[in-house]
Nucleic acid binder design. Structure first.
Length: 180
DNA sequence: CGACTTTGACCCGCGC
DNA sequence: GCGCGGGTCAAAGTCG
């Protein structure tokens, strides 16, 4: 099945109605608003510990600092900055859903009370430090929980890739349209 | 050879 | 203070 680069939720069966509202790539539902719809996570027997996933947590600044020792000291004095976080569930055989962005995996941890590990990904765009966590639910192994942290400050690469031929055509047609 | 994944070690916050 | 759990780092390995 060819995943849709624009609407990643369409390439996966949405596991819960609220999950659709929380799709971060849905252009009609910006993340700022989606963050208000996190209540779907609470009170459900999911096998996933939602609280740490959804609650805002301190985020370090100055991640481009060179040197591990410098990094350690910066972590000790990290500022408390709350970033938008939003989670949604998809029913998919793949752990990582294709949301159109490129991600680099930087860690994986076994999670308590869960037989599946949690994976940590970072957006590969150099100016974008959006992160996401991916974890498969214990009670329903066909459901994958994806938690995004932050908002992309660059266009979706796959979307731009798909649109570029179209944009070229528009540019070619622009002078013609001006004549009409 | 660059981009990416794997994985053990490390760090930090929090509860006891 | 100590141990635990979660998050991140970074070296080594893999892949195209």
């Amino acid at each position: 099945m060819e995943p849709s680069p624009h609407f990643p939720c369409l390439s996966h069966q949405i596991a819960s109605p609220s999950a659709a509202r929380n799709c971060p790539s849905d252009p009609y539902n910006p993340p700022e608003q989606q963050a208000e719809h996190l209540s779907f996570a609470s009170g459900e027997p999911s096998g996933v510990d939602w609280a740490p996933l959804l609650l805002p947590r301190p985020t370090q600044e100055g991640e481009d600092e060179a040197g591990r020792e410098k990094e350690r000291s910066s972590r000790r004095t990290r500022k408390v900055v709350s970033r938008p976080r939003f989670a949604f569930r998809t029913r998919s055989a793949n752990d990582v859903l294709d949301d159109g962005y490129r991600w680099r995996k930087y860690g994986q941890k076994a999670v308590k009370n869960s037989m599946y590990p949690r994976s940590y990904y970072r957006c590969t765009h150099h100016t974008c430090n959006v992160k996401k966590q991916v974890q498969r639910m214990t009670e329903d192994t066909s459901i994958v929980v994806t938690t995004y942290e932050g908002v992309h400050n660059h266009p979706c690469e796959k979307l731009m890739e798909a649109l570029s031929p179209l944009l070229k055509q528009v540019q070619l047609l622009a002078p013609v349209m001006g004549m009409l």
